[in-house]
Design a protein around this nucleic acid. Structure first.
Lengths: 254, 254
DNA sequence: CTTGACATTAACGTTACGTCATGGTTTATC
DNA sequence: GATAAACCATGACGTAACGTTAATGTCAAG
């Protein structure tokens, strides 16, 4: 017989979850008549396993109720649904990838009129090539190799990281009268490099390529240009200085 | 300038969603001073596109707030996050597949004691083989070929389908004194076959194999045995009669 | 006998909206 | 010009699956 906390640790769910499942009649334990404590037996453990199994598959608790009451709850069907889900999600992810490209297009084509002239040199096809090129050069290898997990951060961390990015850019813009090689500027670039590290391990080679992209790829340019018209070039130059003579992963990544 | 409903139809979201985004300050439209109506311009449309883009990627609205305020919101990062997410989800699905196998094991091993004797003839390895065999025989081809979508059903439909399954089994059990070839029994089996069709197109060959499994695979047996000890065999026999001389997809699948 | 770690119920908070309720506005029709 | 249909507004409550206090009761240890 397990108590709430014991079972919760065993199954990796919160005590609150167990009480909730009791409350909605999904998993009703026996009670200690003396003190009213919940007591879960072996049967309850098995049922919880099943509940969590279907929960993982994306069933709602109400659906789980019904499924577990079915006399012919069968494994084959679960297998089918599971694989079906898998296929469907892969489908969805592919559609998202496609949508991504379109949205890039839209964003690039959708800048305000007075900035549109900036794009005169770039045909639609040219722009698309930029995006594809970027994916080929940075995406495939780096992301696939990446072990970092954006999702593994807590909401507070995420928020902090996103804010940090903003601070970096503003800090750099404030130092545009400095020499790109000055310690102040280089400190900001170091922070920027570490910031990128939140998303994936970024070698000096990749960092340099990113600097190029910031200045040359219109999709990136606008974001920095918005802060200051010469920021893209300044950003690229400081990164170039920062990366000079270095290669591979930075020390803080090791 | 679009009004709420116009924009909602354009972007495929509900008017309520737009008002909500206004309420939380995520997408603030201008107002018609006469009547207070919301008016969305071109800029708002673009911003909404971005919001929906990130929403698709699984960002929370609060995160989207921050991201859209960032001066260096950049496409490469979105690409990275997106692909990162994709990889992560594929990972997760693979883990689930693995867990699935384990859970099958657990469920098979976890039946009540008084029914456990039924399993004496089957070693652990034997049982695992059954599961693998089932996956090889039905899973791979059928599921991959399946065009049916469990997820495409509405919650009410899902509930109804699950209940139907239960009704079928009980109806069949109530007819166990009849001849397997009797019209009443065969009507139930037809309903069962159609029911399977909710999940995947089921040929007569597959149906026959399923009948076998219901009677012989302990993982299925218990579910019908629970209703009546001889139900598994009866089920198998009626299915055999139903399938006799037929092959390929049933008429209602065409 | 007190302390700390458990247990209980009750109740409100969360996310991203859906769904009324109630009332004003616009538009089309008679 | 009256009226009905179809829009707009705000406000408030409902949802899923718990998280998070809060207030109180219970148990083992020192």
């Amino acid at each position: 017989m397990y108590t709430v906390q014991q079972l919760s640790k065993l199954a990796g769910v919160s005590p609150r979850t167990l009480r909730f499942y009791d409350q909605i009649g999904l998993l009703t334990p026996t009670r200690n008549p003396q003190n009213g404590y919940r007591l879960y037996g072996e049967a309850a453990l098995l049922r919880l396993q099943q509940i969590l199994f279907f929960r993982e598959l994306g069933f709602s608790l109400e659906e789980i109720q019904t499924v577990l009451e079915m006399p012919d709850f069968d494994v084959l069907r679960a297998l089918h649904l599971h694989r079906h889900n898998l296929l469907q999600r892969v489908d969805r992810l592919n559609r998202l990838l496609h949508t991504l490209d379109q949205t890039i297009q839209h964003l690039q084509g959708g800048v305000p009129m007075d900035e549109k002239s900036l794009y005169d040199g770039f045909s639609e096809e040219q722009q698309k090539e930029y995006a594809d090129e970027a994916r080929r050069r940075y995406g495939a290898e780096m992301v696939d190799l990446s072990q970092r997990r954006w999702e593994s951060y807590t909401p507070e961390q995420k928020k902090r990281i996103l804010e940090e990015s903003q601070e970096n850019t503003l800090a750099l813009a404030a130092l545009m009268d400095h020499d790109p090689a000055s310690p102040e500027v280089q400190a900001v670039i170091l922070a920027w490099h570490k910031h990128i590290g939140y998303f994936y391990p970024c070698t000096y080679e990749v960092a340099r390529a990113l600097g190029q992209a910031y200045a040359e790829d219109p999709a990136f340019r606008v974001n920095y240009e918005r802060v200051h018209p010469d920021l893209p070039e300044f950003f690229r130059d400081t990164i170039a200085v920062y990366c000079r003579g270095k290669s591979g992963l930075p020390p803080f990544e090791k």
